[in-house]
Design a protein around this nucleic acid. Structure first.
Lengths: 181, 181
DNA sequence: GTGATATATATCGTTACGATATATTATAAT
DNA sequence: ATTATAATATATCGTAACGATATATATCAC
C-alpha cells in the first residue's frame, strides 16, 4: 500500500490538506495503521493531482499559511476501490525495542531495565488513550474495530513484558560472554 | 535502526553470508523483529566492509555459487554496542490488512469475509509454528522472550478478530453510502 | 519575553524497497 | 522421464520512502 493510496483513503473521510492527512495517521482514525511523514505526503499529493485522482482548492488564511485542501475525484475513488481489491500484503513490523532485547546479554542490567521501563510507559499511555477514546462518543464500526484491535495488542504486549521481563534481566546479570570472548 | 546495524546484530551470532542474514530475518531468531530484502542487505554489507566494521572471506563451493562469509571486526562490535546505547525508536507498523478493514463499508460482505478468513489463516499458522518451536529444544533467553512475545501478540490478534469480526460484517451489509453519494 | 507547540507547505540527499538477472542443484510433481 | 519449483547465492537498478531541514506565523505557557 503506497503513500498515494493511503492519501486517497483518508480523503474518503472528507476533504483534507497534507497537514491534516498527516494528523489522521498520528492520532486520527488511521493512527494504528502506519506512520507517514511530510516527505512522503506532499510528493504523493502532487502526483495524485497530476493523475487527476484529486483536485485542490487553495484557501488563504489569516495568520496561518495558506491551506491546500484536496478532494477525491470520481476516478480517485475508483482507483482506491481497485487497490482494495488487490491481494493484501502481509503486515510489516520493525521493532527497535525487540532488536535491543535480542542483545539483553550485552547490556548492563540497569540499561536493560531502563529500556523495559520506558517501553512499559509508552504502552501504558497508549492503552490509557485508547480506553478513554472507547468510552467517549460514537465512532464508525471500522474505527471501533481498529481501536479495539490496537488496544488488545497493546495489552497483550504490556502483560507479556511484565510477566517475562525477569528472564531477560537474569540473562543480563550473567557474565557478558560475547564481549569477553 | 538501519540495515547496517541490523546486519552487525546478526553477525554477533556468528559469521554469515548475505543470504544467511536474510534467512535470519525470515525464520531465524530475528524473524519477528523486521523484514529486510537483498536489495538492502548487499549494499549494507558492501558499506560495512568499506568502513572496516566487517571482514569477508570468499568460499568456493562445488555446485553452488561462491559464498562470501562476513565476520564482525572489533570496531564493528563497538559500533553495534554504541547503536544499542542510543534512544530506542518507537515501533513501526504498516498493516495493509487494517487499512482494508477501515473500508469495510466499501467492500462486499463476501470480499470482507474472505480477507478476514485469509488473515485468520495466516495468524493460525504463525501461532502453530511458534508453539512448535517453544516445545522443541533450548534457546537463549532473548530468543525465548521474543518468540513468546510474538506468540502473545498473534494470539491476541486472532482472539480479537474472531470475537469482533461480526461488527465489520454487519457494517458491510449496510447500504454503501460512500459509493452511492 | 522567551521558548515551545501548533499550523502549514516544500525540498533534498540518503536509504530502502521490489523486481529482475544470473547460475546451479535438489526435490517435487505430472 | 521430464518438467517445474524451491533452495542456494550474489548483485544491480529504478522507484519510492524517509528524515532532516527551511520557511513563516500565531498561540500558549512559564
Amino acid at each position: 500500500m503506497d503513500t498515494k493510496t493511503l492519501c486517497l483513503g483518508v480523503l474518503t473521510h472528507g476533504d483534507a490538506s497534507g497537514y491534516e492527512i498527516k494528523k489522521a495517521f498520528e492520532d486520527g482514525p488511521f493512527g494504528h495503521i502506519q506512520e507517514i511523514g511530510f516527505g512522503s505526503i506532499y510528493p504523493a499529493l502532487a502526483q495524485l493531482l497530476k493523475d487527476n485522482l484529486v483536485t485542490v482548492t487553495q484557501y488563504t488564511q489569516e495568520g496561518r499559511p495558506d491551506k491546500k485542501v484536496y478532494s477525491l475525484t470520481a476516478t480517485g475513488r475508483l482507483f482506491l476501490l481497485d487497490a482494495l481489491d488487490e491481494p493484501t500484503e502481509p503486515d510489516k513490523v520493525r521493532s527497535d525495542f525487540l532488536f535491543r532485547m535480542m542483545f539483553a546479554h550485552l547490556l548492563s542490567p540497569s540499561a536493560l531495565e531502563a529500556m523495559i521501563d520506558e517501553r512499559m510507559a509508552v504502552l501504558t499511555e497508549a492503552i490509557a488513550g485508547l480506553e478513554q477514546r472507547a468510552n467517549s462518543g460514537f465512532a464508525p464500526a471500522s474505527e471501533t474495530f481498529i481501536d479495539g484491535y490496537a488496544l488488545a495488542i497493546y495489552r497483550a504486549m504490556a502483560d507479556y513484558i511484565e510477566e517475562n521481563r525477569y528472564q531477560l534481566v537474569s540473562a543480563s546479570l550473567l557474565p557478558q560472554r560475547a564481549v569477553a570472548e
